[in-house]
């Protein structure tokens, strides 16, 4: 396998280039490690939402989950509220928080899929309208007040236990490996790709389309919920607008990473490249002192360039 043919190759090149460009102007040269730590930390959130979104997008045209921000907010809000009210051993509180966040995610996923499957609403409309429901629930449940996470959880989320690597990055890495195995080495992954390539052929070949789709939407919502939980612990509490940037981010990292927006073809390493790139490009443009307008413009142009280069490669292959 020639590595420059890999769908994620150009995204990684771009991420490294952005890193080096930012590092080269860092004061005293010691900024490289700090920049890498910051990039890994914040990319972890994008990776976790991106992995879920990637699975959904793999199912083919029209499949996208727009409820990710609202699910994040709802899961973060409810789980932190629960942990704030609990008393008892710290491990029990932390476990309850995590489990409740994942349960919120699972419920959101089931609702999303029920709207799509039972009411036959297109996924874009279904997940968008469901997101109003989740966001309203989050507002109603806590009126936007930030409840601090338990100290041990906050320490974990902001800590660097092994080799100075952020704990969050390790969590995201372990989950990514799980996703890679599921996509490339399991029946689930092959069926998912089959649906994305041709849902009719997949159904005729005996793929349980409804079950796979249901699992995918629930998984995506659970990933959003987990991200919301971790982000709330990381930043000292859940905020009502905490998920806002992850709607476009989760789609962007999927596409930049080389997964096909038409479905049926996805890859996990690209998600990391896309997430690191999206963080580093903003850091780079900030560090060079460009204003918000130029920054947004250059980000857009660079993303188009990467996608164009990557798809040009695909057309030749």
């Amino acid at each position: 396998m020639r590595i420059h043919r890999a769908p994620w190759f150009w995204a990684w090149v771009a991420a490294f280039a952005a890193f080096l460009a930012t590092w080269s102007i860092s004061a005293g040269g010691g900024g490289g490690a700090a920049l890498a730590v910051a990039a890994l930390t914040f990319a972890s959130f994008s990776v976790l939402t991106g992995l879920g979104q990637m699975l959904v997008i793999t199912m083919g045209p029209g499949n996208v989950d727009l409820s990710i921000p609202a699910t994040m907010t709802l899961a973060g809000t409810l789980s932190l509220k629960l942990m704030g009210e609990m008393t008892g051993p710290v491990w029990a509180i932390m476990l309850a928080g995590l489990v409740s966040a994942l349960a919120v995610g699972a419920c959101a996923g089931v609702v999303n899929f029920a709207l799509i499957r039972l009411l036959r609403i297109p996924p874009i409309i279904a997940t968008l309208s469901a997101s109003f429901l989740y966001q309203s629930l989050a507002i109603w449940s806590n009126r936007g007040l930030r409840i601090k996470p338990p100290a041990a959880l906050a320490e974990f989320a902001t800590g660097r236990a092994i080799l100075g690597i952020p704990n969050l990055a390790l969590v995201a890495l372990v989950i990514s490996i799980g996703f890679w195995v599921a996509l490339n080495r399991s029946g689930f992954g092959r069926r998912l790709s089959a649906i994305g390539q041709n849902p009719r052929a997949a159904r005729l070949a005996g793929v349980p389309v409804a079950r796979i789709m249901g699992t995918t939407y629930v998984t995506c919502a659970k990933m959003a919920a987990l991200t919301g939980f971790l982000l709330a612990c990381f930043s000292g509490g859940a905020a009502l607008n905490m998920g806002a940037e992850f709607l476009l981010m989760s789609i962007a990292v999927t596409v930049i990473g080389g997964s096909s927006i038409a479905g049926g073809d996805s890859n996990v390493p690209g998600i990391w490249a896309g997430a690191l790139f999206m963080y580093l490009i903003v850091s780079m443009l900030n560090s060079y002192g460009l204003g918000a307008g130029v920054r947004l413009l250059s980000t857009g142009v660079i993303i188009i360039a990467i996608v164009a280069v990557a798809s040009g490669r695909k057309a030749q292959a």
């Binding site: 930012t22 982000l231 900030n286 560090s287 002192g289």
Partner: peptide, 25 residues
């Protein structure tokens, strides 16, 4: 010496500041 957009939100501000700090005096 540096300017970032924090969108009036703690986590966005933290993210943006963490990214520009290494390049700042």
């Amino acid at each position: 010496v540096g300017s970032v957009n924090g969108d009036w939100a703690q986590d966005v501000a933290q993210k943006a500041v963490a990214g520009i700090l290494p390049s700042l005096p």
